[in-house]
Design a protein around this nucleic acid. Structure first.
Lengths: 222, 222
DNA sequence: TAAGTTTTGTTGTTTTTTCAACATTTTGAG
DNA sequence: CTCAAAATGTTGAAAAAACAACAAAACTTA
């Protein structure tokens, strides 16, 4: 079945043999559904019944505030999960909507079956929970990094904070970032044009250099 | 032993009987240490050997950037953990330093013993992992909320985004926030005086009202 | 209660960011 | 290759935020 190939690509099921995956699919009452571009997969405020794996395709986590402004919280790509935090933090509803931005294969896992150990006391839950802890931890670290950047006062400080993290992560003063400039502006929550001029200035000053998505960050210390 | 009383207050050990806690202490090689105000508990970049529970007292998670600027990332209070994300995401080092802001009792849990199931295959790890998932999920949701606020362009939007969340959380248009105005400015990463004048303006416009830490948010929709 | 400290609000100046508009370059589809 | 669309850089005017400085209010605590 194609779903096996797809599941094996997600963090949650990688390096687990097909037999075990089959057991898990059964155990967690997994159901695959195809959504077309633009369709809503789940709605903000909707009661949580499933944890969602975006097995194939792309979707946006969107949030609508009291004024009706819609903002894109997160871009969900193939292999990502949605609703895990809400489910395990015992929140009743999804915090955001999930909308397909292209044709997508979505797998729904029954939340209750996922959370409580099943009758036959299989290993599924142990394996799963252990992996979840790692996924959640990594996500938490990424979020903390982003907060660190966003908390900087000026655009210059924001972008340098971001580049430092990327540089440190790549363990080199030369590194690629996963965004183009427009996306970077969006990530750092600043005006694209302002970001552009700040980058130009930093380049002139010799503090950074860049070309497309490749950056160089001068080592400030020492 | 006093440590039992203290542990029972943390999310990780609440509602677990003393006998099991005793087993866990043994299982995870837990060690309690007292730190004085101003002392560093662990340092940024230091190799992770333990997950840390601040059993009593208060501490700050601090981050020093390449320019030498120190910023307070998080205030850790009694019952909070430090280093969980790094440990489970398999990062080699602590991202931040932890510094006691008052006399504190700190419990160190051996990271490796915590993560891998022990020889006698006790229930400790299952209980623990399950609780961790919940703790991590809640933390992740809180971080996502904060990012949502910080991503708003103006101070006015930032503070309204924050108040909306608080209001929704309290399920009432009247609610208390956990910050005074100075702390709120710090949380939203804006100038205190600017926040103050924005709040005044919103109050004049009748959109919000406040008195000390108690707020009222007018329902904008409908 | 009195004195000192912290919190809060206000205001004017300076700096920074946003906004809008446009030119140039790059990318991608056909 | 060609054309349209998207991404990028630049600039000047308008708006907003940071900054600095101060006064009033609230809260400690001796």
């Amino acid at each position: 079945m194609e779903i096996f190939k797809v599941l094996r690509k997600s963090d949650l099921f990688s390096q687990i043999d097909d037999q075990t995956i089959a057991k898990m699919i059964n155990c967690f009452d997994a159901k695959g559904v195809v959504f077309e571009k633009g369709q809503q997969i789940v709605g903000q405020g909707q009661e949580i019944k499933d944890i969602i794996l975006l097995a194939k395709g792309e979707a946006n986590a969107q949030n609508e505030d009291l004024f009706g402004n819609i903002s894109i919280i997160l871009n969900i790509s193939s292999g990502d999960f949605f609703g895990v935090e809400e489910a395990y933090a015992e929140e009743p509803c999804y915090k955001d909507s999930l909308v397909a931005t292209e044709q997508s294969l979505v797998v729904f896992f029954n939340k209750d079956k996922l959370i409580s150990p099943c009758a036959n006391n299989c290993l599924c839950h142990q394996i799963l929970t252990k992996r979840l802890v790692k996924i959640l931890s990594s996500r938490s670290l990424a979020l903390t990094d982003k907060i660190k950047h966003l908390s900087q006062r000026g655009i210059k400080d924001k972008v340098l904070s971001y580049l430092q993290t990327q540089s440190r992560h790549a363990n080199s003063r030369y590194f690629d970032i996963p965004f183009n400039k427009t996306e970077l502006a969006n990530y750092l929550a600043v005006e694209r044009s302002a970001l552009s001029s700040v980058l130009s200035k930093l380049k002139k000053e010799g503090i950074i250099d860049f070309e497309k998505k490749r950056f160089f960050l001068k080592n400030i210390k020492e």
